[in-house]
Structures are given as structure tokens and as C-alpha cells.
């Protein structure tokens, strides 16, 4: 029984980790309607900067949030402004996808150039210390990620629901042309939203860096699962991404323990295929009509 509880708890913690990576991805997709294939590399960039700040300045990794989050916001905003926006008038939407794939490759190679192929270990400042909750144990760093993911989901929902800018963002996501008729500067909302999505993954990077070794290809490791999570939750849905992440985290953990750790990914991606076949709109998916996209 204790083992089962422990596996369950591991799954939830893993879910929190997937959630915090996936939130920014689903946010960008929901608003800008662009799948950012460089999302994992944004995470990687944030983790490297966290590592630099922690090792060079001797600060607690969490302290680097004040630099990493604004930096990632800027990176996201610039990506939208300089890379995606010029392509938005392209007749073929796929051009934007290729652009973000290209950005991803460029960032991986840039990281190899700067940091080499070695693994960068961020000092963990006790974040890998297990704490005991009754019969089960969890790493403090994992627990903080889980809590941060919940806070981030709630904060984003409150912002989108109650602020003037948040409402404008939703308006653009739901009906771009009508939003323009309300006086919304749509290109600016896209820049802001891409920046916000990237800032979210910046927060994820700060929290993940002390727990996982950073390398140039770490992004691929996390972001593949993030795509599954986003599709399961319903593209563009933030609560969907959160609960989708918990489901995938639990599946990953349970199948890893009871079926075999080699088969975890097979089970996760098997579920991914099943969702695509059975319910492509996901758990929380809104119907995606042409009027949403036009």
C-alpha cells in the first residue's frame, strides 16, 4: 500500500513538473495559434542561465527568477516580433511551424557552442532533500514545483479573467477581427502573449534546474511530454494543461512501476495516439472553429 501511495505521489509530482513546462506552450498556442517547437529550448536557455547565476554568483537557484523570467519574457516577445509576426501574413501557416523548428535547432547548436556538450549541474541548495509526509517521501524541490504550477494556473486564470489586458487577450484568441474592431492592437497582444508563455517556461526553468542536469538537448526531453499534455488537456486550455499533466504524470509513474520503466514512454505516447483518434479536442478542449482562427 505504501509503495502504491509512493508511486501515486511520484506521479503527481511528475505531473506538476509537466504542467509547469506545458502551461506556457498551451498559452502561446491558445492565443497566437502558433505551436512553438522551440519551447523546450526556451526551457533549456532558462536552465542554463539559472545554472550560470547560481554557480557564478553563488546565489540560491530560486533567486535567479528575477533575471530569468524577465529575460525569457523578452526572448518570447522578440521571437514573436522578429520571427513569427513577419510570417503571419504568409499564405501557408506551416511556415511559422518551420520557423519555430528552425529556432529550436539554432538554439540547441548555440548552446553547444557556448556551453559545450557537457552536463551542467546546478547546485541544489537542499532542494533534493526528501521530506516525509506520513509513510511517503517527496523531494522539497518537487513539492515547490507542484505548488508553483497550481499558483501559476490560478494567477493566469485571474489575470485573463479580470484584467482589461487579460480580457483583450481572450478576445483576440476568440475572435481576432472583432477584437481589432474594439480597438485592440492585435500584433501587440500577440507579442505580449508570446512573452508571457515564454516567461512561464522561464519560471519552470528556474524550478527544474536544481533537480535535473542541464544540457543542450534537455528541452527535447521535457517538451515531447509537454506536447502530449497540451493535446490531452485541449490545445490552448490552461486548466486543461494542468490536469492533463497530472494524468500523464500518474500514467508515467504507474506504468513505469507496474509495467516496466522501459515501457513508460510507449504507454504515454500510446495514450497520445488514442486521444488524437478518440477525442482530438482533449479533456478541456473548446471546439476549434474557423471563426476562432480567422
Amino acid at each position: 500500500m505504501t509503495t502504491f501511495l509512493q508511486v501515486l505521489l511520484n506521479g503527481l509530482m511528475l505531473g506538476g513538473l509537466f504542467a509547469i513546462v506545458a502551461i506556457g506552450l498551451t498559452l502561446i498556442f491558445g492565443i497566437v495559434k502558433v505551436v512553438n517547437f522551440a519551447h523546450g529550448e526556451f526551457l533549456m536557455a532558462g536552465m542554463f542561465v539559472t545554472w550560470l547565476i547560481t554557480t557564478r554568483l553563488g546565489l540560491h537557484p530560486y533567486a535567479s527568477v528575477i533575471i530569468v523570467v524577465p529575460m525569457m519574457f523578452l526572448l518570447g516577445a522578440l521571437t514573436q516580433r522578429l520571427l513569427i509576426q513577419p510570417l503571419m501574413s504568409a499564405e501557408d501557416d506551416h511556415v511559422q511551424i518551420f520557423a519555430t523548428v528552425g529556432l529550436s535547432t539554432a538554439m540547441i547548436n548555440l548552446a553547444l557552442l557556448i556551453f559545450g556538450a557537457d552536463i551542467a549541474n546546478t547546485p541544489n541548495f537542499g532542494l533534493r532533500t526528501p521530506i516525509e509526509i506520513g509513510p511517503v517521501r517527496v523531494l522539497t524541490g518537487q513539492l515547490y514545483i507542484f505548488i508553483a504550477a497550481i499558483i501559476l494556473v490560478i494567477a493566469l486564470q485571474l489575470f485573463l479573467k479580470n484584467s482589461q489586458t487579460g480580457r483583450a487577450i481572450r478576445a483576440v484568441a476568440q475572435h481576432r477581427v472583432a477584437a481589432e474592431l474594439m480597438g485592440v492592437n492585435v500584433p501587440r497582444i500577440y507579442i505580449l502573449s508570446f512573452g508571457l508563455g515564454a516567461a512561464c517556461v522561464g519560471l519552470a526553468a528556474v524550478l527544474i534546474a536544481p533537480l535535473y542536469p542541464t544540457s543542450s538537448n534537455i528541452g527535447t526531453y521535457f517538451v515531447l511530454t509537454a506536447f502530449v499534455v497540451v493535446v490531452l488537456g485541449g490545445l490552448g486550455s490552461i486548466p486543461g494543461a494542468f490536469f492533463g499533466a497530472l494524468v500523464i504524470g500518474l500514467v508515467d509513474s504507474l506504468s513505469g512501476f507496474y509495467i516496466g520503466s522501459d515501457l513508460r514512454e510507449a504507454v504515454v505516447f500510446g495514450i497520445f495516439l488514442l486521444i488524437l483518434i478518440l477525442k482530438p479536442s482533449g479533456l478541456f478542449g473548446k471546439r476549434m472553429t474557423l471563426s476562432h482562427l480567422s
Partner: peptide
Amino acid sequence: IILVPEGRQLFPDMTVRENLQMGTYRK
């Protein structure tokens, strides 16, 4: 210069109140 567009073009997943609030977006 405000246009009430053809086919209404409301924000479908917003409440009526939120749609009206969007009307006040102009400075």
C-alpha cells in the same frame, strides 16, 4: 469610428457582460 460588424462577431466564450466590457477598450 466604431463598426458593428456583419454576423455579430461576438466573443463566443465570453459572457455578455464581458463582451460589453470589451466595447470600452478604446481609451
